[in-house]
Structures are given as structure tokens and as C-alpha cells.
Design a binder for these strands. Sequence first.
RNA 1: GAAAGUAGUCGGAUAAUCGCGCUUGAAAAAGUGAGGAAAGUCCGUGCAUCUAAGGACAAAUCUCCGGAGAAACUCCGGACGGCGUGAGCCGGUGGAAAGUGCCACAGAAAUGAAAAGCGAAGCCGGUGUGAGCCGGAGUCGGCUUGCGAUGAGCAAGACGAGCAGGGCGAACACUACGCCACUUUGCUAGACUGCCGAUGGAAGUUAUUCACAGGCGAUGGUGCAACGGUGAGGUAAGAGCAUCACCAGCGAUAUCGAGAGGUAUCGGCUAGGUAAACCCAGAUAGGAUGCAAGAUAGAAUUGAAGGUUUUAAAGGCUGUCCGCCAACUUCUAAAUUAUCGCUUGAGAUUAUGAGUAAUUAUAAUACCAGACAGAUGAUUAUCGAGAAACAGAACACGGCUUAUGAGCUACUUUCUUUA
Length: 115
Amino acid sequence: MLPKNYRLKNKHAFTATYKIQNSFYKNGIIMFVGKKSDNISNPKIGFVVSKKTHKRAVKRNRLKRLMRESIRLIIKNNFDFKNTQSIIFVGKSQALGKSFDEIDNSIKLLLKEIN
RNA sequence: GAAAGUAGUCGGAUAAUCGCGCUUGAAAAAGUGAGGAAAGUCCGUGCAUCUAAGGACAAAUCUCCGGAGAAACUCCGGACGGCGUGAGCCGGUGGAAAGUGCCACAGAAAUGAAAAGCGAAGCCGGUGUGAGCCGGAGUCGGCUUGCGAUGAGCAAGACGAGCAGGGCGAACACUACGCCACUUUGCUAGACUGCCGAUGGAAGUUAUUCACAGGCGAUGGUGCAACGGUGAGGUAAGAGCAUCACCAGCGAUAUCGAGAGGUAUCGGCUAGGUAAACCCAGAUAGGAUGCAAGAUAGAAUUGAAGGUUUUAAAGGCUGUCCGCCAACUUCUAAAUUAUCGCUUGAGAUUAUGAGUAAUUAUAAUACCAGACAGAUGAUUAUCGAGAAACAGAACACGGCUUAUGAGCUACUUUCUUUA
């Protein structure tokens, strides 16, 4: 779990991010990017893997954990998010069962799209 | 050794680096952090709210016996039934003789079977008829023993028949008549007897088949199921047929057992299935909704409600009835908050005692996830057959069911081999 100030929490924030419709796809992972704002020190990041992706909670948890771990390491390396308010990563069935390296690579590719 | 059965166990380990939830702490830091099924949500509870209060009914749940348990579609020990060579396994297992309903197709008939003839011919005897088979009156022709060649011929009098002679008789003077014998003797004829062939088809007899009137409910066929089963006796053929043996079922008595039930004897003589259809009997229990239940706090306005109108119908009070309730309409207001509920418990571990067991009593020990976009993770190395099956807490507990990799342990059974 990320530190609290990095977590995207309530439902309104999620729907607001989805409504901007600024999304990118790579290897079974979709990234939604929210508004940019000068007053923001760090982005709030959310992770979604729906029940449609897989029936079993264990498989869904695994994918979310891998994505979260990748972002944690990226934040640790002081990545520049360009004042983005919110980001959502949605895991799809193509991403299930992939290793940490594969997930990490595709998330790094997606984050380049912010610029 | 192989194949099985039952019970249990395990559910990756260690280290390094980088992280997360919760608790304690001023901080540093320390402690702690998914399962045997956390799953399915199928049962039963606690807890919470609603149903104004209340009464009755319906609906609901359960169903062999005893015990355990808060309770349970729960567990333990038994009974009974079924399966298995066996160790064992499986079974929601009261009543179908109170009543109602249903039982497709097939079948004559499916419950008032209390009856039927469905099979081109059910089984059975009787009466009638007499088709066929059998039977063989009558007619015609030929032949007859031996030798020989089945001829020509020769020889004999065997063979059958008749007459006389014999015996016996209830017949009797004799004759006649009936029966028996026909060995011996005499006589007769050669087809009358006999044999063969052809023709002919009378009487008689004959029914599994035809006709009539009956007996039977077995057999065949249908079906999950045909009003007990199998065998014997019995009968014209048959039948639980007041016949028998064994078995099933019902009832009574005796006896063993705490009970379910077991055993023995006797009796009458038989009652289709379905109750997970209604139903009947007994037992239990108010019902409904689930922690997104629900409670509390707070913001410069209040009360989480107020206001208006007036008697008719509709409606409401969680299925129905009783009983009860007047109706209509609208304004303003923080839910995108926090806290509680929330984890100390029908708990856990260990020891001892009681009990066949389920379980229970006592003592000691420790506190062992509690999130809310939701922690329990990532990478590397070593071990390992292996980047290891099923799988992720969300109020809690007791069960059930389902999923599950590779092993390990104990006991038991069957078969085979060796001693």
C-alpha cells in the first residue's frame, strides 16, 4: 500500500478522472490521466482490477500488488509527474500471470506518455 | 510384496535489500499481521433494527433409538435396510389399513383392479358335428408242400379248411346247442380258410384345429408396478386352496434389551407405488431483514421533521382474520465527515480427571489480523522434484458442502510369495 497522501480514495475522484478520457494502453494495462494543477505537490494514484478480469480474488490481488510495487519504486526514484492530479491503472486479463519485470516495463512506458 | 479401507499430519523453509496495515511509544524503535478450507452462503446461533401494543389462525422447521450440544440438513454410540470377498461404506429412516390427488407410454385391465379374453390357437374337461388320419365290409384276378432254375416235369400229403371220431358243461334220452382240444386215424375238395395284387372306401372310431354352453385365473405378453414370493401336494385344468415347507408382510403372546429393536411360538390369510403431492400424527419455535445491521457526535438556522385542510373512499398496520389507524400536500436543511459497533471469545494452547465416544470439569499460560479504493508485498540467493495445488479475512461463532500438489504416520482388510 502506498503512503496515504499518494492514494486516490473516493468515488468522485475516480469518476472525475475517468471523465477526462485521457487514456493509454500497453500490454493489458490501461492508464487514465487526470487534470494538471499547479497547487499539487504529488499525484494521487489508484489501482483497479475488476471481477470481469478474473473470478478469483487471489489472481486480482497479485496483479494490483505488482502494479503498486512498480509505482512505489518509481516514486522512490523521484519521478517527475508534471503536476498531474490523479492517475488510475486498470489491469486487464492480458496482464494476468505476467512477471514483475514485464509489468514494471509496461508501466514505465505508459508514464512516458504523461509528457 | 501388491491392491484397498479408516483416522491423522503437512499446507514451503532460511537469509539479504526495499516496502505496507494495526498496537504501544513524545520519538527512535519494538511487537504483531490470512485459511484448512478465509470459498460456496446450504443449515443453526449470538448481536442489531423493524413489525404501534395484542389475540387467533395459517404458513414454517424437524421425524428410527439413546446420548452430547446454545442450536443445527450438527456430532458420537447403537438399531434397521442396502452395497462390498473383507476392513468398511452409504441411507432426511413416523403414517399409504382416515381421506383426496397422481401413476405418461405400453397393456384386456393401473385401484370400485373384486374383473377380463388380448394371443389368427390361453389352459381344461363336457356335449354336438365328423373334415383329415385310422379302420378295411364288398368286388375281381392269381397263387399254394418238396425237389428242380420261381421253367418243363417229378414226388409227397406236410400246410390250412370242412366232416366224422375225443373231452367238458348249469345244455342233455338221442339229436341239437356251447366251450375246449385238434396229438393220432379216416374221408373231402383245391380255394370256401389263407397269401399276393388290383379295385373299393361301408360300419366303426377319431377334435389341438369346427360349433355350443361352462370351469380356471395359473401360463404368455405389457409395464417401475398386475392384489404376497418359491417349491411341493392337490385338481379335468387350476387357484393360499380354512393343504404343506421356507421366506416377506400384518396381528397376538412370551422373552431379552434403557430404547430403536432382536428371538421364539401361535393366529388369521395378504393391504400396488407416491407423503422431496395434499394430508394425518408427534415434536420445536413469534416473524422479517442482515454489520452497506445499527448507534453517537459535529457545522452560526431548526426538530431531522414541520405545515395545511376536513369526513368520503382508498389505503396502511411485513400471509389471513379479529382488532386498530382521518386524509392531503409541501418547505428548509452539512453527508464526499469522524467515532463506536470491531474483535477477550458458546475463544485458543497445555496438563490432569470423568466418559466407549461426541463431549465435559478443573487448573495454568498467553492475548494472537481488524483494513475501508481496503495491509499481509516485490526482487535476489540457497535448500527442495519444483519461480509448489486449491485459494485471500471484512461483525463473530458452531456445522455442512465443494476445491486441493507432492509426501509422511498409525491401525485394519483381501490376495500372493517365503519361512
